[in-house]
């Protein structure tokens, strides 16, 4: 990825940090996953919150969300809007088959020292100018909201040559949902062989309570063995326990999940390795998130 793209995405990097570091969960919630008829639309909520799927924290960002039509070509996001707690958008499912909707974020986070002062790369950026603390934000940021605008985060391009103790971690995450009009298809599951990806064996729009589903995870196109996957049912407010399960993929990268009841489930896989592509980065942190609908038999 070009540095300029990294800079654009750096603001979103906060949301790409795996859930292990931040309890806040990013989710996309479709109005449905199985559609019939000739004029199907799906409407999707995008939000960040602890409890699934309750809108009580932050809206999701629409600028990184893309639509893949069943043939793999780009589709159109319509009627996007962002409110206090959620963003919402529609996709007109005007072609039969399985659609993919979601975002891929990547960036670099970390820290370095310059003249004995630690500075952070990526993340949320620094506090507003004049508030003290680290940062290199220039003038002209913000405009109408004095004191409220944070400085943009530093990027790897901002690390001076004489910096010491450079610690950098690549982050990449995907947050995707799958919806099907008519018969399910599999073209949108074709892996890019970059980072952590979802290669379902059971079609994600054919999930049924009481039947086991199998999903393969891939890292750079190879089976992701032994990675941790959280599966959490929605409707947290109406239960005492969260009801989440911590599962692990097998040696073949395959995760087997059973669904005790029908409903919407949030699935989040996270892993780290050292196969970085950024100079000086020592670790690569990867996350994959999806929302799955399980129907009654």
């Amino acid at each position: 990825m070009r540095p300029i793209a990294r800079r654009l995405l750096a603001a979103a990097a906060l949301l790409s940090i795996p859930a292990g570091l931040s309890a806040h969960r990013m989710w996309l919630l479709p109005s449905g996953t199985v559609f019939s008829g000739t004029n199907s639309w799906v409407t999707v909520d995008a939000a960040v919150s602890n409890d699934l799927f309750f809108l009580d924290h932050q809206p999701g960002r629409l600028d990184g969300i893309k639509v893949w039509q069943p043939d793999g070509t780009p589709g159109e996001l319509k009627n996007g809007a962002t409110g206090r707690y959620r963003s919402v958008f529609d996709v007109q499912l005007d072609k039969p088959g399985t659609w993919k909707i979601g975002s891929q974020l990547s960036g670099v986070v970390g820290s370095f020292k310059i003249d004995g002062v630690e500075k952070r790369v990526g993340g949320r950026g620094g506090p507003p100018p004049g508030a003290g603390g680290p940062g290199m934000g220039g003038p002209g940021m913000g405009g109408g909201q004095p004191g409220a605008v944070r400085q943009p985060p530093l990027t790897i391009a901002d690390i001076p040559a004489n910096a010491t103790e450079v610690k950098l971690t690549e982050t990449s995450s995907r947050n995707e949902i799958f919806v099907t009009a008519g018969e399910p298809t599999t073209t949108v599951f074709k892996p890019t062989n970059q980072g952590l990806e979802f290669a379902p064996i059971t079609h994600p729009d054919e999930l049924v309570a009481g039947e086991a589903a199998k999903f393969r995870f891939l890292i750079d196109g190879k089976p992701a063995a032994g990675i941790k996957v959280s599966v959490i049912p929605g409707g947290k407010r109406y239960r005492n326990e969260e009801g989440g399960r911590e599962l692990t993929t097998g040696a073949d990268g395959v995760l087997t999940v059973t669904w005790p009841t029908a409903g919407m489930y949030w699935l989040n896989a996270t892993t780290t390795d050292t196969r970085t592509s950024t100079p000086r980065a020592t670790e690569r942190r990867m996350a994959y998130t999806t929302t799955l609908e399980v129907l009654t038999p």
């Binding site: 008829g37 000739t38 004029n39 129907l295 038999p297």
Partner: peptide, 22 residues
Amino acid sequence: GNEPGTKWLSDLRAWWRKGGRS
């Protein structure tokens, strides 16, 4: 019209999955 009768066929969800969709 905008909401043709086929829109709710997937509510017959077992049938839809078992072949109605084809």
